[in-house]
Design a protein around this nucleic acid. Structure first.
Length: 277
DNA sequence: AAACATTCCTGCACGC
DNA sequence: TGCGTGCAGGAATGTT
């Protein structure tokens, strides 16, 4: 479900509300996520203070003052729910942290994930860059480390379609199926063009499109297509700003040609055959 | 009721 | 032949 803008929106919401709170209790109600949830590891953090909410790619990193960080991925259908402890738990609330806020009030943080493609693990904070889940990740698209030269270098001898290439987290992180289509429309590049057949000047256009689309989506609180919600349960409003995704048959915003939908590698792809070459 | 916003792994093909 | 790399496909699963 969530791509980088959605995870970033959730991170900001949680940081504002829960930074400085302490873990009072933790409950693992269903450990069967993409990786098994180890209740013992989470219990080792009882009493810990949550000192920062960070993000790497689509991973949420909850740093504690005990030298360990909780790594959370939302998979396709995961949500982080900040709730009043008296609110009843829902069916797919798999992990529940009972927190005490700075002011002393109780607050729940709940990991809810119907499809269970997400994960909740812990790791030493100092070892995060070398953690198996994080160590092969490419640059953050909204950082200085993301430039056209890097893209040109990684695209050499890559015959895959540029859309699949952009979705490869070793190339650049955080770009999933929705934003890959959006970025390529904005850059005017056909989604099935081979990565090794794209000129450097067009890589710079793709880089700019990544930065613009992701920044605008974050400013809009993310894209809600079906069930995405931020930490307060609010919807993201970027769906109305989508140019091609989920707009098959509707007119291209630039040239009015009907947007096409194809399926590549099992994933829906949307593009304008006139604007994108 | 077919589609699905993610990630990781497998197995195959190819080139040196 | 053996190795490394690149790539397509599949699997995990519940909801709408």
């Amino acid at each position: 479900m969530p791509e980088l803008p959605e995870v970033e929106t959730i991170r900001r919401g949680l940081a504002g509300r829960l930074t400085g709170s302490r873990i009072v209790a933790v409950e693992v109600r269903d450990p069967r996520l993409r990786l098994p949830v180890r209740e013992r590891d989470l219990r080792a953090l009882l009493g810990a203070r949550l000192v920062a909410f960070d993000r790497r790619a689509k991973y949420l990193l909850v740093r504690t003052d005990l030298g360990r960080t909780i790594i959370i991925h939302l998979g396709m259908s995961g949500r982080m729910v900040s709730a009043d402890p008296s609110d009843s738990l829902q069916r797919h609330d798999h992990v529940v942290w009972r927190l005490r806020l700075n002011g002393g009030a109780g607050e729940d943080l709940r990991f809810r994930d119907p499809r269970r493609f997400g994960l909740v693990v812990t790791a030493r904070t100092g070892g995060l860059p070398r953690h198996p889940l994080l160590r092969r990740l490419g640059p953050e698209p909204l950082s200085d480390g993301f430039d056209a030269a890097t893209l040109v270098r990684s695209a050499a001898r890559r015959r895959v379609a540029v859309k699949a290439f952009l979705m490869d987290p070793a190339v650049v992180v955080g770009i999933g199926n929705i934003y890959a289509s959006e970025v390529l429309w904005r850059a005017g590049v056909h989604p099935r063009r081979r990565a090794d057949r794209i000129a450097p000047v067009r890589w710079e256009r793709i880089r700019e499109a990544c930065v613009q689309v992701l920044s605008e989506a974050i400013a809009a609180g993310g894209t809600t297509l079906r069930d995405y919600r931020n930490a307060d349960g609010a919807l993201g409003t970027f769906a109305v700003a989508l140019s091609v995704y989920d707009r098959a048959g509707r007119p291209c915003r630039r040239c009015a040609t009907a947007i096409r939908r194809t399926v590549d590698g099992g994933r829906a792809t949307y593009y304008c055959a006139r604007c994108q070459r």
